[in-house]
Design a binder for these strands. Structure first.
Lengths: 207, 207
DNA sequence: CATAGGTTGGACCGCACGTTCCAGGAGGTG
DNA sequence: CACCTCCTGGAACGTGCGGTCCAACCTATG
């Protein structure tokens, strides 16, 4: 039919997300994309313009499809520490189980390398960092309101610490760390924050 | 002179270390190496064999020259928590000041990406991880002996947590985080471990 | 049923990659 | 001083890259 694509661009992007996530951006050539999508170079370039633009689209798709769901426990600050524990729980599950186990996190991988230097990529990474930071900040503030935090709590420092732990989980999971070890470590991190007399459960997922 | 190189291979490797560290492995071509070392392709290949071998040599050099010095506070377990704080202090200084500020960590970058999948690279990364883990483990054990830790301390979890924070510092420093924020966050992480009545100084570097 | 617009597959482009090769050169050795 | 050995610079190789182009094709429309 004239003017109608013979394929679904959305599906192609989904395929590319998995490819980039698994084997990285620099290691992926156009031919790999052709193979995994089953499309021809022409169709790819006619639809997405360039490898770079396709990569950006895939990165955005990755955020929507694979990162955003992990954030839901933190929405609106949740109920403080338990929500943060649930966030880590979801993150660790996503990183250690299923078809994408041990693939790490595309965002952390880009932030840790020079590939994030591209201005457009850097903008997406910065926005994503603010999203993570903002979500954790809201949750920590809520925890403070609920009296779950130590008396000497430095909220900004706690948030930055939690961001670090998030990156740590992403790196260590790709490196082969076991989910149990990651959960225990995340639990240890949360212990830093909890008020001694608080009876909130910071690890509802069990051990 | 016959049989004698006209240049110092060690200096060449040093140059390559900086190149790989700054702009990454996949983004670096032979021409870049030729430019930065001032050598010809022939000399490079005659001396190092291949780009891959040169990269491995540069990675080892990086560990000896830039990573090992950061570890010294942890030698033999040091004096527990203050030694761990000193370790983080050195790490943050190395990541945020001087000519290599904001370059992150080559090891963390490789571990976070698919480039660490090469068997030889993976072996080096695994050994380095064990070195980090072992050094932190010794320091945490020592802290336990000195009564610096909380009563409910899970040593293994604490060590994994500290490894995560290390990766977090490496990622966040490349991403532009300020040294102050990183120090506060590391301090918050150490608070997780300290016994409530311990009077050890976990941040000797000041704020 | 002919037309027309847009898609498609595959050939093709220039370029840069990692690597190899060889003629030339430099300096200890006899 | 001639020789010999090894290193050196630069040209060249094959390959694969990202990207372009065009003829063939397909189908809604007139």
């Amino acid at each position: 039919m004239p003017g109608t694509k013979h394929f679904d661009p959305d599906e192609a992007i989904d395929d590319v997300v998995l490819l980039l996530w698994r084997q990285g951006w620099a290691e992926t050539g156009i031919q790999d994309i052709v193979d995994v999508t089953g499309l021809s170079r022409s169709s790819l370039y006619a639809t997405f313009g360039s490898k770079h633009q396709l990569g950006l689209a895939a990165l955005e798709r990755y955020l929507d499809r694979y990162v955003a769901p992990v954030f839901t426990p933190l929405d609106g600050g949740g109920d403080g520490l338990p929500s943060i524990a649930a966030f880590f729980g979801r993150l660790i599950t996503a990183r250690c189980w299923g078809a994408r186990a041990r693939w790490g996190c595309l965002v952390t991988a880009l932030q840790a390398t020079a590939q994030g230097a591209d201005p457009e990529v850097a903008a997406i990474l910065a926005a994503q960092h603010e999203r993570l930071r903002g979500a954790l900040h809201a949750a920590v503030r809520r925890a403070a309101q609920l009296g779950q935090l130590r008396a000497d709590a430095d909220i900004e420092a706690m948030v930055e610490h939690l961001v670090m732990v998030t990156h740590g989980i992403n790196v260590r999971s790709r490196d082969g760390a076991e989910a149990r070890a990651l959960r225990h470590a995340a639990s240890a991190a949360l212990s830093a924050m909890r008020a001694p007399d608080a009876v909130v459960d910071t690890w509802p997922q069990g051990k």
